[in-house]
Amino acid sequence: MTILEEVEKGRKEIRTDDYAMSIGEWVSMYEDGDLDIHPEFQRFFRWTEEQKSNLVESILLGIPLPPIFVSQREDGVWDVIDGLQRLSTIFQLMGIFVDHKGVKQDALVLTKTKYIPSLDGASWDGEKPIPPELKRILRRNKLSVSIILRESDENTKFDLFERLNTGGTKLSNQEVRNCILVMVNQDFYNWIRELSNDENFVATTALSDKNLQEAYDVELVLRFLLLVDASEDELKSVGDVGVYLSTKMVELAKDAAFDRGYWEARFRGVFQLLSDHVGDASFKRYSNAKGRHEGGFVISQYEAVTAGVAARIDAELDEAATATRVQQLWEHEEYTEWAKSGVTAARRLRRIIPFSRSHFTK
């Protein structure tokens, strides 16, 4: 297929429309249930009170804002793809924002801004109410919207969300994936979050607060589900690991035949065994010279050990020998050469996972 043909094909798969709507119209859509801003995303998007106040200042001053991107669902409801924080800030300002538990949040109290310092302490209807004239300005101000029509390919909105929310944002790659998962299958997302709270998983990974804040624990659960049983051909096909995780995650979340019960038992079994026999050293480097594990969490160790231990459980081999097998990984050049820093994730995976499965089942 030529470049021109690929462009034509892509344009046919993505149908869009663009126009401007007043904030009053956005509010009406939200109150009528015609706009889904996914309030559960609030745990990922972390705007400060200052950022929210700056947005309100921009609207009052007439500073143009970027367009809101939405995707039109089969039922006609708009899924907000980009602009979640802008819209939720506006709705919170007006005292109508409802969180993911269905609880109406307290109205936003503004802070001092650069050009309108008198906004400090002001709110929609509080002790220092915003003047009626300014409320009218806010309601009449228009926000542009770009709509992905429902005739578009169903994966378009997930691709667009990922492109708009990666690079230059405060969201980690997994936080973006989490948002996509909520849109694709919230029940599946909740299930993965539940697995990330498994006490043995938490104890053996021993992640930092920063890792947890950026949802790295959820990414590790996802890596387990996608890589533990991946065939060698599948591993060789991996290019960009981040893209692979995102693509396969959506496929998994949509797969009605995926056996959650089997995978949950498998996940919990692997981390129970590691917790019992290796503990929080499970995913740390092993120094043969010092005869001990040291340092912090190592992703290559996680990938290798989880795949190896899963294979060992399948083979019904002596579980008590697992700790020795973990340590012995670091005696083999086939492992250490590919587990060291500087090796790309894609090249690493296709080598250490097959090696580890064999190493743990000898």
Results as ranks from 00 to 15, higher is better:
residue 253 A to G: 03
residue 302 Y to F: 15
residue 157 K to W: 04
residue 311 A to L: 09
residue 355 F to Q: 01
residue 228 V to T: 12
residue 341 S to K: 15
residue 316 E to R: 15
residue 12 K to H: 13
residue 249 M to P: 00
residue 240 D to A: 06
residue 152 S to E: 08
residue 165 N to W: 04
residue 8 E to N: 14
residue 88 S to D: 04
residue 208 S to Q: 09
residue 331 E to N: 11
residue 340 K to N: 12
residue 325 R to H: 06
residue 189 Y to S: 12
residue 3 I to L: 15
residue 311 A to R: 09
residue 332 H to C: 07
residue 59 I to V: 15
residue 116 I to L: 15
residue 352 I to F: 00
residue 141 N to S: 15
residue 330 W to G: 00
residue 240 D to I: 02
residue 102 G to W: 08
residue 280 D to Q: 13
residue 153 D to C: 05
residue 320 A to P: 05
residue 266 R to F: 12
residue 260 R to L: 13
residue 195 L to Q: 08
residue 30 Y to G: 02
residue 270 V to E: 01
residue 307 A to D: 05
residue 103 V to E: 13
residue 57 E to C: 04
residue 16 T to G: 09
residue 247 T to M: 04
residue 167 G to T: 07
residue 306 T to F: 02
residue 326 V to H: 05
residue 328 Q to D: 14
residue 183 M to R: 07
residue 23 I to Q: 05
residue 251 E to F: 13
residue 331 E to C: 07
residue 14 I to E: 02
residue 201 F to G: 04
residue 2 T to Y: 08
residue 335 Y to L: 06
residue 156 T to D: 02
residue 347 R to K: 14
residue 163 R to A: 12
residue 266 R to P: 01
residue 29 M to F: 15
residue 308 G to I: 03
residue 309 V to N: 07
residue 311 A to M: 05
residue 12 K to E: 15
residue 2 T to K: 12
residue 150 R to M: 07
residue 312 R to W: 09
residue 203 A to N: 11
residue 334 E to K: 11
residue 305 V to G: 05
residue 108 L to W: 08
residue 84 L to T: 01
residue 234 E to R: 06
residue 278 V to T: 12
residue 183 M to D: 06
residue 11 R to F: 12
residue 296 G to P: 13
residue 107 A to M: 11
residue 37 I to P: 05
residue 71 S to M: 06
residue 17 D to G: 10
residue 339 A to V: 09
residue 217 D to F: 03
residue 67 P to H: 09
residue 161 F to T: 00
residue 357 R to F: 03
residue 100 H to Y: 10
residue 183 M to F: 02
residue 78 W to T: 00
residue 271 F to I: 06
residue 37 I to K: 02
residue 200 N to Y: 15
residue 123 S to L: 11
residue 67 P to K: 11
residue 200 N to M: 06
residue 163 R to D: 02
residue 13 E to Y: 09
residue 72 Q to S: 03
residue 343 V to F: 00
residue 200 N to C: 13
residue 173 N to M: 09
residue 179 C to I: 05
residue 131 P to E: 09
residue 44 F to R: 05
residue 68 I to V: 13
residue 184 V to A: 13
residue 295 G to I: 08
residue 119 L to P: 10
residue 267 F to H: 14
residue 85 Q to Y: 04
residue 50 E to L: 10
residue 17 D to I: 03
residue 173 N to G: 06
residue 26 W to Q: 01
residue 327 Q to I: 00
residue 63 I to Q: 01
residue 261 G to I: 10
residue 134 L to T: 00
residue 286 Y to N: 01
